[in-house]
Design a protein around this nucleic acid. Structure first.
Lengths: 263, 263
DNA sequence: TAGTGGTCTAGACCACATA
DNA sequence: ATGTGGTCTAGACCACTAC
């Protein structure tokens, strides 16, 4: 069986495991189901916040048992791509929820919890289209000179400027995003990407160093030149491991620290 | 059924889910199995590197189906406490394996892979018994003044001193560990803890900041005072979430960086 | 050949949410 | 009352490892 006519989805259905010959191309059924679900997520068929079909329905659609679908969903849930809610259904994870609001921001105040300082203040310093330099292009899998959107902003907590961030986005996937829209948007930036451009950040890599503050930092973060700052370079990826954002942050760590858990 | 006489284990068997009344004390069978396995690991019944009983045997022992045991083991494997090897069995994870040698060290060279600079050199600067200060006691869940083992060492890569580490261990669980033994031991420190003291580090929390180098750093890391360094404070935990090690590291980040993955 | 973990199924019952 | 995900079972077959 390759495809079934009663399947209303436009994408190709995963072919059922061929147990007649044990070649190297073997892939477990549940992995194929998982790949199919990933495709649908990537295609935007099910949007962040929405529910996906029930396990029973997916099982019927793929002509496998509920347990096999369950195992595929289990893995996607453990990767934070899906969210299971007993009695309600399985939902596409989103950055818009309060819980996962700061899933990618590891800087926390030394005392108190996040948010105990009141709401963060965000000041856009700069926002424009530009050309990718060699290192920006490499991080975003572009070519040098390709158009990118660039933004610079300062995040303040408790009235003090703590974070200076430079952000680069590839222009193509964010077609229609104006500097103005970015500057005026209130709310999590990753939520904007989801709702307006169907770009969901699912994973990120960060490289961290200690660097001395420059004149720019003195101006924007109100620190003396030479003050040690945490330099955090982040590349965020979407469903298919496509790099979609480069972010370079400079964190003041006199009153905050970067918290990490090692499993 | 509470316990069965044919169970040869000394520890209490998990009581089977009481489905007759749905109280708040409900806990799934597989969670109880998981707890039992955790107990055995904590008690040192199965040692790091050894295999645990097969799924079938555990299922028979607990009088549950293989699938229920499998789910318990699945979770423990995903938490890196157990390691499954198809055809061979399930093994207690260990820090002695080459793969997971540096599971807790996130500092990597900017170019090349870890180890491309040749083997790390470790120089013990100091190693002695002392009394816990207030902050050390708090981190290790001790009382101020309790005896701790303290060590200071420098790690060099490619001939350059990169890391200065101060390590504190509670004296009680490491009874018999002499400063001499620590200083002369070759190999991963966490492997020594496992084999000699049945203390396995399964999890750690790190708090990171940027700090200026002091005179001590100038002496031991060969940097100018004021040079930004990465300050990494780590508390490592064993099976029952007991804090067992406090480690304060200062990393030079001119040629290395701290790498982190955000899920 | 035997034993291990890995996949898959079919069906039962439970807990939770909603109508 | 119905539908969802959560747990548990019993059994089949496959893939890998070791003897």
């Amino acid at each position: 069986m390759q495809t079934s006519p009663d399947n209303d989805l436009t994408t190709a259905e995963p072919s059922v495991q061929a147990s007649s010959h044990t070649t190297a191309a073997f892939s477990p059924l549940y992995q194929q189901i998982k790949g199919f679900i990933l495709n649908s997520l990537h295609a935007g068929e099910w949007k962040p916040g929405e529910s996906i079909p029930s396990e029973m329905e997916l099982a019927a659609r793929f002509k496998v048992s509920q347990g096999t679908v369950r195992k595929a969903i289990d893995e996607l849930a453990s990767e934070n791509l899906l969210l299971r809610r007993q009695g309600k259904g399985t939902f596409v994870a989103t950055h818009a929820e309060q819980q996962v609001q700061f899933r990618f921001l590891k800087l926390v105040p030394d005392s108190g919890t996040r948010g105990s300082e009141g709401p963060a203040q965000r000041d856009i310093i700069e926002c424009r289209r530009s050309r990718a330099t060699a290192d920006v292009a490499r991080a975003l899998a572009l070519r040098t000179g390709d158009t990118v959107l660039q933004a610079r902003r300062v995040l303040s907590f408790g009235g003090s400027p703590i974070i200076l961030e430079d952000i680069w986005l590839p222009a193509a996937p964010f077609k229609g995003l104006t500097a103005d829209r970015l500057a005026n948007y209130q709310g999590p930036m990753y939520a904007l990407f989801e709702t307006e451009f169907n770009v969901r950040m699912v994973r990120a890599e960060e490289n961290i160093r200690a660097i001395p503050a420059s004149d720019v930092h003195e101006l924007l973060l109100k620190v003396k030149p030479g003050t040690p700052l945490l330099s955090v370079e982040r590349v965020a990826y979407t469903y298919r491991d496509e790099p979609m954002e480069l972010r370079r942050g400079c964190y003041r760590t006199e009153t905050h620290h970067y918290h990490n858990t090692l499993g």
